[in-house]
Design a protein around this nucleic acid. Structure first.
Length: 476
RNA sequence: CGAGGCGUAGCGCAGUUUGGUAGCGCGCUUGGUUCGGGACCAAGAGGUCGUGGGUUCAAAUCCCGUCGCCUCGACCA
């Protein structure tokens, strides 16, 4: 079979030029395009449909867990940002500030939200009065702005879409439990919806959210072995509650501060999908979030009965709840095959006179790039099964790859060799910031998350007794 | 902010060295033949050459300025 020589030239080689491959794929498959302002992007319908699918799945999970949706304002008074000392220090360099409005200079500058802990803390402070008001658990789907120096579509843009959930509890234990529960929710979602294996765990002090007591992260391994932080949850203790007066009268009559936590995932997840599953031909989308799950390519469309048969098949699959698209454009079949493969559609069905004659369908699995045949009777079930099998295979393939590329290191040289080879490196760490910094200097790798297991005896950097075992990696 | 690169038709580029009618491929439009791995024929449409100034009979091309974007670093979901 021909190997698509002409077509792969449209995108850079995935092995030798992965960054280029990534942006080529994003633009060429119409997931997104660059916006007119530096660092901004337009999420085009094909990309936005993926986001809508992500939203639908996550939103259902949040609601099932008892979280309510709300919406808080884009603009935050500058003075709010300065109320939590660590928070302002962390975010000040990257906030955009509105200084003029209505043709006049504003009395107080307004910050375009980089995250909403402050304004939500302010409102929660008004709403929480009694232990009966707790827990208070709200989430918003919105945009935020962080003026980053280096940007890349989906991975890091000045403005991005996300959800941020914020909760207040009466006790620290409950808030911490929720922080871990949301991390688990994210990991389950990553596995079952994005077909993406992740490492979860607590972040080091250096890597934690500005203003948090503890940050937990979900990290995924990209095609090149680098790590992408794909979701975070934060336990704030009473830091924000004290800064914004989130107080309640407890059962015992005492006035107490609440304990808060927050959690978020963003459109970066789309970048994670692309870089986890993609291959030399382009995107490979997991069936649960693919805007088109099955594309039907008619062969010899003008021959009698072909389009009718294709239309009838599409109707049947639609009725079965499958997202189907018929490509009846004038392009040649070969062109369509390559196009839809680049766009990552999980399953393609070819239907031509030969198939109709024989009462069968020819299909192509995007994950394995293998063709097969099935009878056209009861094909709904067979297609559903195939989509399920593709999901499982994508997850298993990615999981195997990640597991094979986790190596242990005892020394800095081993650690460097590990990350140079595109691995996640497990290593002991004494807990000192200086050693973490040195690892970064030496190997351009950062502590992604701390392992629950603590089996590496000595610090990879200073050789003293290790307090934790840490996953180090180069990160996006 | 540091270092590189690029702005010429929707996209990708050539033309700039040596100033002289604005080009190529793909895409797009119309008609026709095709259709099982990027088909073909014919006819068309489309550009203040990023932008401001300067030199010149003449500037995409030379000079000065300026703006924007991309990539790579330091910072980050």
């Amino acid at each position: 079979m021909a190997k698509n020589e002409g077509f792969v030239n449209e995108i850079a080689d995935i092995e030798s030029d992965f960054p280029r491959w990534y942006t080529d794929v994003v633009v060429r498959t119409k997931l997104a395009d660059y916006g007119p302002v530096k660092g901004t992007m337009v999420i085009r319908p094909y990309g936005y449909a993926i986001w809508e699918n992500i939203q639908r799945e996550l939103d259902a999970r949040f609601k099932a867990a008892g979280v309510e949706n709300a919406y808080f304002p884009l603009l935050i008074p500058m003075s709010f940002m300065t109320k939590e000392a660590e928070h302002v220090e962390g975010f000040a360099p990257e906030v955009a500030v509105v200084t003029h409005a209505g043709g006049a200079k504003l009395e107080e500058p307004l910050v375009v939200r980089p995250t909403s802990e402050t304004v939500i803390g302010h409102m929660f402070g008004k709403w929480v009065e009694s232990w009966r008001d707790l827990p208070l658990r709200q989430n918003q789907w919105c945009n935020v702005m962080r003026w980053e120096k280096t940007t890349r579509p989906f991975l890091r843009t000045s403005e991005f879409l996300w959800q941020e959930g914020h909760s207040v509890y009466a006790t620290g234990e409950e808030a911490e439990a929720e922080t871990l529960a949301m991390l688990a929710l994210y990991a389950e979602f990553a596995k079952n919806v994005l077909c993406m294996p992740v490492l979860t765990g607590r972040k080091t002090e250096k890597e934690k959210f500005a203003g948090a007591v503890a940050t937990y992260g979900m990290e995924a391994m990209m095609h090149d072995g680098k790590s992408l932080q794909s979701g975070t949850t934060h336990y704030m203790g009473q830091n924000f509650a004290k800064a914004f007066g989130v107080q309640f009268t407890d059962k015992d009559g005492a006035l107490k501060y609440g304990y808060t936590m927050s959690y978020g995932v963003s459109t970066r997840l789309i970048g994670a999908l692309i870089m986890t599953h993609g291959d030399a031909r382009g995107l490979v989308l997991p069936p649960p979030v693919a805007p088109v799950q099955v594309v039907i390519v008619p062969i010899a469309m003008k021959k009698e009965g072909v389009l009718e048969a294709v239309g009838a098949l599409a109707e049947r699959l639609k009725k079965a709840g499958i997202k189907v698209k018929v490509d009846d454009t004038d392009n040649s079949p070969g062109w369509k095959f390559n196009e839809w493969e680049m766009k990552g559609v999980p399953l393609r069905i070819e239907l031509g006179p030969r198939d109709i004659e024989a009462g069968k369908l020819t299909f192509f699995r995007r994950d394995t790039c293998e063709k097969g045949e099935m009878g056209s009777e009861n094909c709904e079930e067979a297609v559903k099964e195939l989509l399920g099998a593709i999901s499982v295979n994508l997850y298993e393939k990615a999981k195997k790859r990640m597991e094979e590329r986790i190596v242990n290191a005892q020394t800095l040289d081993e650690l460097l060799a590990g990350v140079d080879g595109g691995n996640f490196v497990r290593a002991g760490w004494c807990g000192e910031r200086a050693c973490e910094d040195k690892v970064k200097d030496f190997a351009q790798a950062t502590a992604r998350v701390m392992d629950e297991k603590n089996d590496m005896p000595v610090c990879v950097c200073c050789g003293k007794k290790a307090k934790r075992t840490v996953f180090f990696a180069r990160a996006y």
